[in-house]
């Protein structure tokens, strides 16, 4: 049976993709942020996961408001990146693992998560940036993209994202392959791009959230989406991707391998987290 060996999470700010493309990792503005990936990469080199399930949010590359799924699961052999309109270079395609995609889809729908399935799915920076950060040489494992709507309200609640993540974790654990899987939550932490409140960051909330991820991971599910917007900003609400990835890895305590928190990258409180089974 497949085995989940860890849960990873990181911010996915587009500027990170730009910095990678321009080779700015050692520049003063970026160094501390990129150096934070040394330990995750050491951990990944040791664990050597075969497959990754990425929980992320599309920002208007694959999905538009004409059809906006709350949850969408990719079921393709390959996922293409493409022009997002503002200048980060398009990356080569990422490998899919359709067999696991369908195992997840079957299990989700059997458990009343009526998701959208996608045999073609463009993946934007929220999917590609974490894979480039954790696997900078482009050798990321085959992936299953799981997209959560954070664009158009109503968004799914934190509690619902946790439950969906749990069901994905059950599907992975029941997948009849002797392979190692990691989950990734993409986005956050606190930031707000639009309105007079642009630039909002909530350091104490972010640090509390990071603290709870190992031992009390359902803490943030007590909040409604609007409460999360108030506490973390309109884009900070992307932490629902972290909750889903964390839930998929384990319902109980996990051990924190490493964590970073850095204000600001672009307009965002940037964070990275690696958890392994307790």
């Amino acid at each position: 049976m497949a085995r989940i060996v860890g849960a990873l999470a990181t911010s996915h700010i587009p500027a990170i993709g730009g910095a990678i493309a321009r080779g700015l990792q050692k520049e003063p503005y970026w160094k501390r942020f990129f150096d934070g990936f040394d330990r995750p990469r050491e951990w990944l080199a040791r664990e050597k996961p075969d497959v990754v399930a990425v929980f992320y949010n599309d920002h208007g590359l694959n999905f538009f408001l004409d059809k906006m799924p709350t949850f969408a699961v990719g079921a393709a052999a390959q996922y293409r990146n493409d022009d997002e309109g503002w200048g980060i270079p398009t990356l080569p395609p990422f490998k899919g693992v359709p067999e696991l995609s369908w195992a997840i889809i079957d299990h989700l729908i059997a458990n009343d998560f009526d998701i959208v399935t996608c045999q073609e799915m463009l993946v934007d920076h929220a999917f590609t940036v974490p894979l480039k950060l954790f696997w900078p040489d482009g050798d990321a494992p085959a992936a299953v993209p799981i997209c959560i709507n954070t664009v158009q309200f109503p968004l799914p609640s934190a509690k619902r994202c946790w439950a969906m993540g749990r069901a994905v974790g059950e599907a992975i654990a029941g997948w009849d392959r002797d392979l190692k899987v990691v989950t990734i939550g993409s986005g956050g932490l606190s930031h707000q791009l639009e309105g007079q409140r642009a630039g909002f960051i909530n350091k104490p909330f972010d640090l509390k959230f990071l603290d709870t991820m190992a031992d009390d991971p359902e803490w943030a599910t007590q909040f409604s989406v609007l409460e999360l917007v108030e506490k973390t900003g309109t884009q900070g609400v992307e932490l629902i991707n972290w909750l889903a990835a964390r839930a998929a890895a384990s319902p109980g305590p996990m051990r924190k391998v490493t964590q970073t928190y850095h204000i600001p990258i672009s307009n965002t409180a940037a964070a990275t987290l690696v958890l392994e089974p307790a």
Binding site: V151, F153, R197, E230
Partner: peptide, 9 residues
């Protein structure tokens, strides 16, 4: 309820 914020509903 949230200053400077209009949820995109």
């Amino acid at each position: 309820a949230i200053f400077g914020t209009t949820p995109f509903d």
